[in-house]
Simulated scan of single mutants.
Amino acid sequence: MCTGSLKRACHALWQALRTTHAIFHMLALSCIIISDLLQSAHGLKDLKIFVPDAVIMGNAATLSCQYDLEKAQLYSVRWYFGQEEFYRYVPREAKPVLVFNVAGINVDMANSDATSVTLKGVTRDLTGSYQCEVSEDAPLFHTDIRSAHMQVVELPKDEPVMKVEKKVIGVNDNFHAACSVGPSYPPANITWYINGRKIYKTPMQRITLDAFEGSPTYSSLDIAPHSQVLQGFFQAIPKYLPNILLSCEVSILQMFHKNVQQRIALSMAPPTTVSPNLLGLEGSKRYANGDPDNSALTGAAQCSSSAVGVLLLAVATLTVAQL
């Protein structure tokens, strides 16, 4: 009798525990759902970061962080360069703005607030990743973070220069040109064009590019006589002006674009030969009547010259005999 009562009591307790566990699980799940709903309805959302892709060295750069708190209150905005915090805005503090000492960073306090921070006189060392972290106030303290990359560009001090080996080329001539620009960061890119058409590297069109940080950027262009691009221009000479416009375009991201141009004449003239006149193999000018001006040097005249020579020799011999 007691054994049966004990079993029934244990079963009832087990059922109660299962019910309690189910109720606890439902309560926990409800809390999570409610918390998510409250957070989505009234918390931090739509965090976006705006950082310049590139900025010229020495200029100012403004970094912006846009967000929507809806009915929540802002707790803090923090800015990081890499892993180092350099700017913090906490509106509830007596001094809302706090700047940390990070090498190379100079914050413009007058132009920095809860949504943006301005850096003065940026240097090459400030190329890297920037992060904006926003936290809402109690009770949730929800926090979100976004990051973006900024490139600090050092422009070359001198204008790009192009040199060509020949300003007039024939149908069978090799063509060589070079384009260079001073040191920059990052190194410049050089692209070649003929009459506005980009020149690509092929077995007949060799292009080299030497670009190293801290050194001038150099590119050369070598085109073989029978390359498709040159042959096309030579074939078009009867219809168009016999010259081409060679261009080298120097660019650094979207911050620097320079174009150097040179007109190259195309010649259909046959290969140059040396005139026999220059070698002394022909007589001088002809007379107006068409007779050669070297008529005095005919065979008869040459014989007369020989007779004169014999006569002079005889005279000389006679004179010696008389002596």
Results as ranks from 00 to 15, higher is better:
257 H>A: 06
165 E>W: 10
172 N>Y: 04
268 M>Q: 10
79 W>Q: 03
58 G>E: 07
12 A>G: 05
73 Q>L: 14
259 N>R: 14
58 G>K: 04
24 F>M: 14
11 H>A: 09
64 S>E: 12
29 L>S: 12
49 I>C: 04
279 L>Q: 04
235 Q>V: 07
105 I>T: 00
158 D>V: 09
26 M>F: 15
11 H>V: 08
61 A>P: 03
7 K>I: 11
192 W>K: 02
241 L>A: 14
305 S>L: 13
26 M>N: 14
212 F>M: 14
49 I>P: 02
163 K>I: 07
133 E>A: 07
102 V>T: 07
168 V>T: 12
285 K>P: 01
24 F>V: 14
103 A>K: 10
157 K>N: 12
287 Y>P: 01
189 N>E: 13
59 N>E: 15
277 N>P: 00
178 A>F: 00
87 Y>R: 02
220 S>W: 01
129 S>R: 11
313 L>M: 14
108 D>Y: 06
147 S>T: 11
238 P>C: 10
220 S>T: 14
66 Q>S: 09
205 Q>Y: 00
76 S>C: 05
43 G>M: 06
76 S>H: 04
128 G>W: 05
191 T>A: 12
182 G>Y: 03
176 H>D: 09
287 Y>V: 00
175 F>Q: 04
297 L>E: 07
242 P>D: 04
163 K>P: 01
93 E>Q: 08
215 S>K: 13
153 V>Y: 03
211 A>C: 05
251 S>M: 10
209 L>F: 02
118 T>S: 09
57 M>E: 15
206 R>D: 09
101 N>P: 05
323 L>G: 09
210 D>I: 06
27 L>A: 10
25 H>K: 15
297 L>Y: 11
286 R>C: 06
76 S>W: 00
163 K>R: 12
73 Q>T: 09
263 R>G: 01
141 F>N: 13
195 N>T: 04
37 L>Q: 10
72 A>N: 07
213 E>M: 07
268 M>S: 11
49 I>M: 08
9 A>S: 10
257 H>M: 08
284 S>R: 08
133 E>K: 12
